[in-house]
Amino acid sequence: MSLAEAEPTHGYLASHFETLEQQHQSAALGMWTFLATEVMFFGGLFLGFSVYRFVDPEPFAIASRHLNVTLGTINTFVLLTSSLTMALVVRAGQTGDRKAQVRNLLLTMALATLFLGIKAREYYEEFEHHLAPGASFSTAALHLPEDAPESLGQQAQLFFVFYFFMTGLHGFHMLIGIAVMAVLVVKAQRGQYTAEHYTQLEMTGLYWHFVDLVWVFLFPLLYLVELHT
């Protein structure tokens, strides 16, 4: 008797796997491989940011202090909370609790949307102050010293290039996450995730926690580390 016949698979077992357990572990390994490429992807940006910051710290410090720390802190709180609700989604998958899956998925989506709303409010503020890089960029809001060399403003603009690109890319990852969760919530509602089969919930959970991990480093580097100077 083969292993595949030893336990019920409810038609979820793909033909190239022996057991659901093996299928689940392969999915997890594939997801971690994808996350490793994401670490490299964001890592390059973090490295670029670090190099410019350490080579010429002053303009980055001036620019950093102009971000809205209050909204940034609230957003970190919102995102960490969404990671908790996502962890509870996966747990509800493990216990096969359909109602808890749906409820926590909806909560996670709501928190993610709130995060993006607050982020949009911050972007709006920065656009209003002409801090978005490009033709309309102005150092007026940064209150640079009178005798500041032109390069100071240019380097400060570079900070905002990193800021908008990194938080924008992070926000884009969140949009993808919300879209995936929208599909999952329909499938969960139909009762497609049971204690034997919840791989999609767990993989989406890994993705979501990764998005949270990126923010855990983005927030202090962009908003906090220059506040004390």
């Binding site: 990671s83 962890a87 926690h209």
Partner: peptide
């Protein structure tokens, strides 16, 4: 520390 806690517990 935050990253480790998220990876170890939330990400299992």
């Amino acid at each position: 520390s935050k990253a480790l806690m998220i990876a170890m517990i939330f990400m299992h």
